[in-house]
Write a protein that binds this DNA or RNA. Sequence first.
DNA 1: TGTAAATCGATAAAAAAATATCGATTCGAG
DNA 2: CTCGAATCGATATTTTTTTATCGATTTACA
Lengths: 212, 212
Amino acid sequence: MEGKTAEISKAAFLRFPAYLRYLKAEEAAGVGYVSSSEIAEDMHLSAVCVRKDLALVASEPGKPRLGFAVGKLIGDLERALGYHLKTHACVVGAGRLGRAFLVYDGFEHYGIDVVAAFDISPAQVGALRGKPIYPMERLKEIAERENVRLGILTVPGEAAQQACDAMVEAGITAILSFAPAYVRVPEGVTLRCEDLAASLASLSAETEKSGA
Amino acid sequence: MEGKTAEISKAAFLRFPAYLRYLKAEEAAGVGYVSSSEIAEDMHLSAVCVRKDLALVASEPGKPRLGFAVGKLIGDLERALGYHLKTHACVVGAGRLGRAFLVYDGFEHYGIDVVAAFDISPAQVGALRGKPIYPMERLKEIAERENVRLGILTVPGEAAQQACDAMVEAGITAILSFAPAYVRVPEGVTLRCEDLAASLASLSAETEKSGA
DNA sequence: TGTAAATCGATAAAAAAATATCGATTCGAG
DNA sequence: CTCGAATCGATATTTTTTTATCGATTTACA
């Protein structure tokens, strides 16, 4: 019997990052309090939905007539999302996309530290803005040494399965794949596929539907 | 009262790309028929869910004891996802991520043609593998000329709103944003935010939860 | 050719999520 | 100080999505 750590629904969890972005924009604009109806209108959600979501994470109740303290909410959301934990990640596949991840400086706010990239081509080996790019052979060695748990897979589709296997072998337990291919992972390894092309295509299809 | 164009649930629609990836892998392996239970096991879904999803798109029913014809299903899914339609897209923000999108050759399978990129910095202007990179001033002109409907937003967070406004002004009606910022769009414009860092962070959090 | 095994598709039930309603609370203006 | 407007949070309802069950069909094999 856990005290108050209620069950956070999967759908709500997916909305949290959007709240966070919105609240940070409000904070930057100097807003101190926001009401749930205000959030709802700006974010195109129902006010009830917002209230329910915030009730899941808010450390203190909202004040009638005022709303929620923006700064407080941001902290609560970040904690709920686990951004306060520090995690080491690596990139496998140092192409354009992979290198973009390697040097992207937005991860630190999320508790993620991308420590290195790996590539099968010797031509890519080196470094970028101080972040090293190693040959694939060293994946296991470096991953174990740096305690890397997270892997970002950005290789061409035909190389995806092999690269993925190497990551699993190196002890990586969570993989975010951008490779346009179906890959198989063993039990105990979490895999999420972000098919950017498919995402874009579905967005396009959606627009067609509602537009014309 | 529409004939047979049944309502495709939103959740099912999101699963379609994954089916597609899986089926293409099977096809490449020379498999002619797959049963829904086989798909379910490989993809970690329930067999009933798979059958319901496939029933929404399949142009011909599955055969008992055999399953569905792989090639046929692939075609059906692609049609349902709108990949047969041709759409022009552009990239706004020609940094590393933006350039990765510009030259990514996987979009053509999805009916998307990325025709150009735009950047505010004159240093980025030029071309990459035959794809032009224009200055932001020419966005509207080019977008209208090329009939661009889709925009991929890959600028730093602080430039996102301004760039987004320019895209809307240029007649773009669907925007896929990778900028880590909250942006506001007018009615009639579809916006989807892909917060890569948040996605990675949530994956990490998920693993923590189930792992330890 | 006949039998058995396994699949499909449809109907029904369960679970989850979104939405609606209502009283209690409290801030701000008069 | 009092009144009114607006918000919160909780309960209830509706909708959506997932999961379960069952008979019909068909292929493979003896």
